[in-house]
Computed example of a mutant assay.
Amino acid sequence: MDQQRDVYQQLAARSGRQFLDGLRALPEFKPAPGIHLGQLRVTVTVVDGKDVGFVDMDPVNLGDLGDIAARRAEGLRAKHARLNARPTLRLIGGGQ
């Protein structure tokens, strides 16, 4: 059981690193010369594990990512609702 927990923590850490790498790859949003928007820090920690790392981001990119995640969540909820609403054929009884 401990081995399985370790594997899941390693997978979570790898996913966290991939997420942070993706955030770092985004170009910083710069509205105009001399204007500084401030930064927000995104930290990834494996629950009951270690810190994976952090990245400082501008609020515009982070807000856009939040909007994208919200749209994806809405689409996934709608998809699952459609799948659960489909009629299914069930075989009851039978046999010899």
Rank of each mutant, 00 (worst) to 15 (best):
V55N: 01
A81I: 02
L26Q: 07
L83Y: 12
G95C: 07
V60R: 00
G34V: 08
R86T: 07
G66T: 08
V60K: 02
A12I: 00
G95M: 07
D56T: 09
A73N: 13
E74I: 04
V46W: 05
L37P: 14
L62Q: 09
G66M: 08
Q39I: 03
S15I: 05
P87Q: 01
V52G: 00
A25K: 03
G66R: 06
H36D: 15
G75Q: 13
H36L: 10
G95E: 10
T88N: 10
G38S: 13
I92D: 13
P33G: 12
Q9D: 06
G16S: 01
D64F: 02
F54R: 04
I35H: 03
G75D: 04
Q10V: 00
R17P: 01
L83H: 07
G53P: 01
D58A: 07
R86H: 09
Q10F: 01
G93I: 06
A12D: 00
R71A: 09
R24Q: 14
G93D: 03
H80C: 09
A13R: 03
L37Q: 14
R14I: 01
P59D: 05
D67H: 10
D2R: 12
L26Y: 06
Q3V: 05
G66S: 11
G94Q: 15
F54P: 00
L37F: 15
L76G: 11
E74Y: 11
L62M: 13
T43V: 15
N84W: 06
Q96A: 12
E28G: 04
R17D: 05
L91E: 11
R5W: 04
A32G: 09
V47G: 00
D2M: 11
I92A: 07
G16N: 03
A25D: 11
